[in-house]
Design a protein around this nucleic acid. Structure first.
Lengths: 115, 115
DNA sequence: ATACATCGCTATCAAAAATGTAGCAAGGGG
DNA sequence: CCCCTTGCTACATTTTTGATAGCGATGTAT
């Protein structure tokens, strides 16, 4: 039985209430979801191109994530393969600052470990 | 063998390169990580309080997530139980806009389904 | 001191999800 | 027809998550 797509308003993995933020976290908290959104941000990619970008993702999981993201209106099929929808781009806009933040986080962790 | 904590600079689940953003996505892409950060944003919580807030999390997983988040410098133990570190608060600041966005996403999904 | 409650977990086992690899059906080019 | 790429599906294995019970430590009231 394949996993269900988290839908705001309905109980999801981890929340009886189905609060939108919890549904979103359920979706984003699955392996590769964040990575796929990140990779698609620069333009449409074919299934295999996406697979290559995400070095270690199995086709099984990639396909499942793409279906979930499509059902959630974040991804759709464009001329060049899979692409972010408008909503997907909005979400990515929120995600973008994570890039630079992760950099400084990495530096902080190094300092933390060397002490 | 328990799961390892994703560390920037080292290969992680899903990335040979170990780019910080990929390490971060690996961490955030585990079940309950996002939810825990969210719940801790309003102040320190004890283990059991956290368990109650996250309705369905098992102690096994909660404990594992807390260890990972501690090792990653995002969470530490304060006077009132577990709390966000400074870095954790920075990350939450990036996460906060997801709340309102999730609301409008929920509305969009309803419209999408009713058409 | 004893009884009881609460807290932060750990142990154990079952279920679900992810991984790795192989390969198929469809479409295009030569 | 032959060969190549694309978008997957099948299947077996490993990893992760989930559910439940309960232990040892600490505090508090009796």
């Amino acid at each position: 039985m394949p996993a269900q797509v988290p839908i705001p308003g309905q109980p999801v993995r981890g929340s009886r209430s189905g609060k939108p933020i919890m549904a979103l976290f359920d979706l984003l908290g699955r392996s590769w979801t964040l990575g796929v959104l990140w990779q698609l941000s620069e333009g449409g990619l074919t299934f295999r191109a996406l697979q290559d970008r995400c070095e270690k993702v199995s086709p099984t999981v990639l396909n499942r994530r793409l279906k979930e993201l499509s059902a959630s209106g974040l991804v759709c099929r464009g001329e060049e393969g899979y692409a972010l929808t408008e909503a997907g781009q909005e979400l990515f806009a929120l995600l973008r600052p994570f890039g630079p933040w992760a950099q400084s986080w990495a530096v902080m962790l190094e300092d933390m470990d060397s002490d």
